[in-house]
Design a protein around this nucleic acid. Structure first.
Lengths: 225, 225
DNA sequence: CGGAACGTTGACATATATCAAAGGGAGTGG
DNA sequence: CCACTCCCTTTGATATATGTCAACGTTCCG
């Protein structure tokens, strides 16, 4: 388990001694593809770190439309915030693949951070980061149309790659387009049209899950920057 | 300043000694109605607590549409998350009235919480609460229509009042309808129509800023619960 | 009193969701 | 290897919610 803790964004950087102190609060859970880890509004006695596999956290409307809040991959933690707020999970979580999760139990974890401010600071940083991302999601949902959101999505990926001048910019989508639609707050049909629009405008070229950014300047213009 | 710290949600419950230790990190700032406290993307050397007055935090689209993220009243803190994330403010903040703010300076505050885990825990709780609220906002923006959002808005107010059976349910809007529109992620015209719709359906009765909930069951039905 | 901000209403434009259909691609079983 | 199914994706026709623009009445406040 220590190995997974070290790989996690929340606890990397701590020495073995601190991490062993953590172990009293941690257990392990295997999940299979499609398994629901928790439902929205379930009581929240623990939060999670992904050891292996991939998990989606999402909300669902009465009509069945789904809004993905995040996709957690190896090393990501999720549902940390549930420990302190109302004590209920604010969204539903489902395994997208088979995998292993670290389960961090609430009460024991709290007594640990009461003693170790460094862990508390890490948690604070992590929560801040989440706030930042949600902030951005709100902004996009309420102020941008879909083409803009899709352009932003590509820009984020491109900027993370920090590749050198004049490299061809090839992106392979890490999710099915259906899933991407739900992340962007829309439905597959609309997303498909948005892809078509950006293609027709010669901003990107699409071939299945492979997207090439043809005109980066135009991409930024679409994103409104 | 201690007085204001005590009134704040973030630091209430601490004894005078802890609070005096805080003072090295705090200063005071007066603002006048309409004054911009910070712009989105400004570097963030501090966060704030409202001593007196009212402040709105919002995003704005290239076309000028405004999405209010929160309205901070006396005792509320805002922009806490900016201290840790990218070090930039994620939104713009403007005084809605004249008022006084406590300014909590980043570096000194961080060294304080490194020493005082209790303050760190409070901050964590606060950030969790913010996450919870943003979560809800995302849900509503992406999964609900305006009538539903307005119904939710009233339900939240009614539930906070926890009044006894058979009381008449009278709500006086605390914000101008223009502002409410921006909080709900829409524009005044659309909000006006939503008010009209709920009135016509005999769910509420509206008289200027006074709203009476006529049929609570129907209100819940509109909110989809 | 008069002007500015707010609120409402109507006609209209537009983005996005919905519904229905059809075309691939990957995997499965015969 | 073929036929079959399942799921993803795309496309078209249509409906609907919401934004835009313009006008007007109202309230607030100097």
């Amino acid at each position: 388990m220590i190995r997974y803790l070290k790989k996690s964004k929340l606890f990397s950087g701590f020495d073995d001694e601190s991490l062993e102190g953590m172990l009293t609060a941690v257990s392990m859970k295997s999940v299979t593809k499609g398994e629901i880890i928790f439902y929205e509004k379930d009581p929240a006695p623990a939060f999670f770190i992904v050891g292996t596999g991939k998990v989606k956290i999402f909300k669902i409307s009465p009509e069945g439309k789904e809004q993905i809040l995040m996709i957690a991959s190896e090393g990501d933690s999720f549902a940390e915030a549930a420990l302190f707020g109302g004590g209920k999970y604010p969204a539903t979580s489902q395994a997208m693949t088979d995998g292993k999760l670290l389960v961090i139990h609430r009460d024991r974890f709290i007594s640990i951070i009461e003693r170790d401010p460094a862990i508390a600071l890490n948690l604070i940083a992590r929560l801040s980061h989440l706030l930042h991302k949600l902030n951005k999601l709100v902004e996009e949902l309420s102020l941008s149309d879909i083409n803009t959101r899709l352009a932003h999505y590509f820009i984020n990926i491109v900027e993370e790659k920090n590749l050198s001048e004049n490299d061809p910019i090839l992106i392979t989508l890490s999710e099915k387009k259906t899933v991407l639609a739900s992340q962007l707050g829309t439905i597959p049909e609309t997303l498909s049209r948005s892809f078509k629009k950006l293609s027709k405008e010669k901003v990107i070229a699409v071939n299945g899950a492979d997207v090439t950014v043809v005109d980066l300047d135009k991409l930024y213009k679409f994103a409104g920057e």
